[in-house]
């Protein structure tokens, strides 16, 4: 594989990775392109195993794995082809926090230029570690360790960054600001990022592409927006956030006959559903729960007495039990 493959980073063909009882990856075939790719799936789905393969921590037991020149050798202004942020942080117990950053920059530890030293200070400041610069990894909190590991990876300036649940231990209030630093770095350097996450919002906000894994197999792969709006299955859809999944047989009841043109399941995001106050509406509200950006309402189809929950955008005025409403689909 070479660079002419229009920004392809890796191509995996029937790649397997053995596990103790069942394979951790089972005949995985996919391509990874330049840009930002999120790997999503339940715990134990194989996200870490896939990242370990890309980071060459592990070698596949079967199948073929091709890497582009971008990830095999140093190119352009990048100092490294790839670097990673493992789940544990992968910090070095005998280095202080600032030494982790010095180690990956020009000159190495103790030999940094004034520019590199400035860069070290900058990375420490951006990840709120300036006051902890003298601490050893064992003296840092889990959140600080996570931040240091990400800062180290960015300071290493690789062409491709691999991150296994980055910032997982960082307080959610500050997580967005650190993701902003990562985003800015990617934009400035043109580096690519492959990361795993459990958080749908992060996957949607940060990635261009998404890979869904389940039991070591790929269940979906494609552009994040495409998968978000047109998920191939309910399960895949849920990885990217709340969804109302209507089995083909229920579509006529809940969405009306017009929507039942195709005999397929239909998935609608909360923002695609609007409940309207309508005395003649087909539904009666049994319960209503406000959840901030969306609400969860239990509806009864008045004609058939079928009951189900609907996740939707909250209306301007609060709904209430016993209210009769209509269900509107917004494209």
């Amino acid at each position: 594989m070479n660079n002419s493959d229009s920004g392809l980073l890796w191509r995996l063909q029937d790649v397997s990775l053995a596990g103790q009882t069942s394979p951790r990856l089972d005949r995985v075939s996919l391509t990874l392109s330049a840009g930002v790719t999120a790997i999503i799936g339940y715990s134990g789905a194989g996200k870490t195993s896939l990242l370990n393969l890309l980071a060459t921590l592990e070698i596949p037991d079967g199948g073929s794995m091709e890497a582009s020149t971008t990830v095999k050798a140093r190119t352009g202004a990048f100092r490294l082809p790839t670097y990673w942020v493992p789940q544990s942080g992968g910090l070095w117990s005998h280095f202080r926090a600032e030494q982790h950053l010095e180690a990956v920059q020009a000159g190495g530890i103790g030999q940094n230029s004034s520019q590199s030293r400035e860069s070290t200070d900058n990375w420490l400041a951006r990840f709120d570690l300036s006051e902890r610069r003298q601490a050893y990894p064992g003296q840092l909190s889990r959140g600080e360790q996570s931040r240091l590991s990400v800062a180290r990876a960015l300071a290493a300036n690789p062409a491709v960054l691999l991150m296994d649940e980055p910032l997982a231990h960082v307080d959610p209030v500050r997580t967005p600001q650190y993701w902003r630093v990562i985003r800015e770095h990617l934009a400035t350097t043109g580096a690519s990022l492959v990361f795993s996450t459990h958080e749908p919002a992060v996957a949607i906000q940060e990635s261009d592409h998404v890979i869904c894994l389940k039991n070591g197999s790929v269940t979906a792969t494609g552009l994040t927006r495409e998968i978000y709006h047109h998920p191939p299955s309910c399960e895949v859809a849920r990885f990217l956030g709340p969804i109302n999944w209507f089995a083909a047989a229920d579509v006529a009841v809940w969405l009306g006959t017009e929507s039942a043109t195709a005999a397929e399941d239909v998935g609608l995001r909360p923002e695609n559903i609007h409940l309207t106050d309508n005395k003649d509406g087909a539904f009666e509200i049994l319960s209503f729960r406000f959840g901030g950006s969306y609400a969860e309402t239990q509806l009864k189809h008045r004609a058939s007495s079928q009951v189900r929950s609907i996740i939707h955008r909250p209306a301007g005025s609060a709904h209430y039990e016993g209210q009769t409403v209509g269900l509107e689909v917004i494209s």
């Binding site: 980071a55 140093r74 100092r79 910090l91 000159g107 190495g108």
Partner: peptide, 15 residues
């Protein structure tokens, strides 16, 4: 492995 990946660096000090 975090250290091993740095071996690919062109910078002599880093490697």
């Amino acid at each position: 492995h975090s250290a091993g990946l740095l071996l690919a660096s062109a910078d002599a000090g880093v490697s």
